[in-house]
Design a binder for these strands. Structure first.
Lengths: 242, 242
DNA sequence: CGATTAATTGAACCTGGTCAATCGGAGTGG
DNA sequence: CCACTCCGATTGACCAGGTTCAATTAATCG
């Protein structure tokens, strides 16, 4: 049994732009099914031509890029509402891999109908451009974090970013949220060594700025952490949901 | 006197996807004029709401993001064919600044007509998504360069990237191209200090892998530099031109 | 119970940052 | 024409943030 778009629990979050019932209907018709995967599953693979597009309904994942040296760069962390596979649709093939880190449920759309869908529903096509622009925006921020900040700062920044996204999705309770990632994931996201990642997290814990252990991230004082991250407090950015 | 889109010299480059005459006509109608700026001019400013969109016709520029610490991160280098201002159109305001580094000529479109244009010409809307996806792709590559590579490697990578883009645009003659950027620009792009940037460039010059001085970049042996960059040789990616 | 994976800690080392000084070219005013 | 200034490039010395190597603990799994 798949979820009806109009009853999609995500759509109720005010992180997402409102849509008319008619608009939701058209998306419902575009929807081809649902995909449920276990942690560790690869949903999209770099270099492949994905026949499908997905919207994350629930669960967390990771988007990464493998270098041909064997290293990898984690591009970002995937949250419910994220739309993936667009690159393959538009550029021929995926240039990064998407992996689940928790059980995930994804909304599936057929790539073959994508172009037709865009043509018939320019508002949705516009939304996709919108989502791309947001993605681009965040990548720019990430670049600045890696390029211009110290390990402590960028770690603080990354945790803030995850936490705030989680908060906007109602995943935070009592200033705690589940973080199913490993320190290796975080290290590869920030371009730090695993060892230094561990020590940096230790420092944040010691100073009681961010406590992450046993898959739970606890941030007692958001403002304090934001200060370390040298990150201006910013309201979550409204985004479209497909 | 502005250039007619159908006679646009850029369109002849095979870096750009072909269009029918009718398609070019519609773009011509969307075109609102041309903007010519001197080196150093700010074309778009972070935080502002740009009333216009631009396609770079000629000249080189830089896209950067200022941190509120005073540091800056150079996001990428702008080349002819790049489309800028989309973010402001779609997200309300610019999140980076665009500055000219040579005299530049830009094709101007009115933001107010943007939505209407998208709706009437879904193929163009699709192209914009396409361009966003390409941009996103390159940002991912950049992230990997900053995060996973040594200074020497990422410098080699950056020079390769610029050079290859230049080559695809016919800006390379005799394995040389004009590079109007400063070492500070490059340092801020790669997250290196100015001093180390200088020394790294010195090393590349010494090894005769990449010689950059007096605004001219000379790469005697592409494959050798690519090897240092640990970058697989890749054909320039076809892209739409608006 | 051995095997595997993630987290943790210590120590040695090195890449790249910081500080500081110099040089050369372009522009400017006297 | 010269002195002065400004900016980008260049170089040396010193230092620290982060990497690498190595070993240990803890938890999960067949």
């Amino acid at each position: 049994m798949t979820i009806q778009c109009q009853h999609c629990p995500l759509r109720r979050k005010d992180l997402f732009a409102d849509m008319t019932l008619a608009e939701i209907e058209t998306i419902q018709r575009f929807k081809a099914g649902e995909l449920v995967v276990e942690p560790g599953a690869q949903i999209l693979v770099e270099g492949s031509t994905a026949p499908q597009l997905y919207t994350v309904l629930s669960g967390l994942g990771i988007r990464e890029k493998k270098l041909h040296t064997g290293d990898r760069q984690v591009i970002n962390f995937l949250f419910p509402g994220d739309f993936i596979g667009l690159q393959a649709s538009v550029m021929g093939e995926m240039n990064h891999t998407v992996e689940a880190r928790t059980p995930m449920r994804l909304c599936v759309f057929n790539r073959s109908e994508f172009w037709d869908f865009c043509k018939k529903h320019p508002n949705r096509a516009y939304d996709m451009t919108w989502m791309s622009a947001i993605e681009e925006h965040f990548l720019g921020e990430t670049l600045a974090a890696l390029g211009q900040r110290s390990a402590l700062q960028s770690m603080a920044w990354a945790l803030m970013r995850i936490y705030q996204r989680g908060a906007a999705l109602g995943m935070v309770r009592d200033s705690r949220m589940t973080l199913p990632y490993t320190q290796r994931d975080m290290a590869d996201a920030l371009g730090l060594s695993l060892v230094h990642t561990n020590k940096t997290l230790g420092k944040l814990k010691e100073r009681e700025l961010a406590l992450w252990s046993d898959q739970v991230l606890h941030i007692p004082d958001l403002d304090a952490l934001a200060a370390v991250a040298e990150m201006p407090a910013q309201a979550p950015r409204l985004r479209p949901l497909l």
